[in-house]
Amino acid sequence: MEFGPHLMLATLEGAVTAAVLALTAAGLSLVFGVMRVVNIAHGEFFMLGAVLAWWVTQAVAGPWGFALALVVAPLLVGALAVAADVTILKRLSYDPERTIVATIGLLYILQQLTLMTYGPDARPVVAPFNARIALPWLERGPDGWALTWPWGLGITTWKLTVIGAAGAVLCALWLFLARTRVGLVMRATQADREMATAFGVPVERVYALTFGLGAGMAALAAVLIVPIQQAHYLMGADPLLLSFIVVIIGGLGSLPGTLLAAVLIGLSDGIISVFFSPTLAKILATLLVALVLVFRPQGLFGARGR
């Protein structure tokens, strides 16, 4: 394949990464923004989503099984996160440093419990539909410009659906935060916790809901990606690292910044991974994050003075 089609393929793969990353990172960003909690266990919620999708599709075969997984996995993971919030985080009174240590513990508990029950194998989940679409490429032939169909350039319908679904869910999240009463209460808590308490906002319930919602979004992202990647008990590490990178570069707690950064990181990760080595892409991204935090703690797109 020549450079042009290769780049386009890398961009398409990057777009799928970006879509899933945007969902996962939006969950992390929401939790950090509203609760000021850095949730290290976020990647494990992602992993649980994928593993639950495998269980559900094993129990109920066919496309309905997958549709059921799309509903059941985020709900169960969200419920688990709410339980973790009430039993652990609430009792630490959301102290930033102690919650990090506790969520690290939670990470190991979830990961190792999955290892004990689900086992160390990577297992595939079949997408409900997965037709392949070959894409044309405009090329200058001996008789002028012509459309060609380079071998290997294409995308599957499932990948397109993933991108579309992620976009739809993010729009729904934005509408939820901007237009509903619960979203308003959440934003009020984010802006000023004490003032919100004074106005009678049940802050603890808002926190539990936010933590559940954030975890549910990670699980949803995982169900969408699991037909492309397989479900494995260690799969949470990469999404966690990438979401961190995205949330920090986009500005901690800022949702639009997070989305922009997700697209940027997803695309560049796809492109760098295709042309160079994936490890190199990750090294560059992690160093970028560290330097952004050191020199521009409000993030590349965040406003100053927050």
């Binding site: 690290i104 513990g105 190991y108 508990i109 990961q111 004990m116």
Partner: peptide, 11 residues
């Protein structure tokens, strides 16, 4: 799954 112990201990 011995890291489970580490997780429980941390929490």
């Amino acid at each position: 799954a011995y890291m489970l112990i580490a997780g429980v201990a941390l929490v």
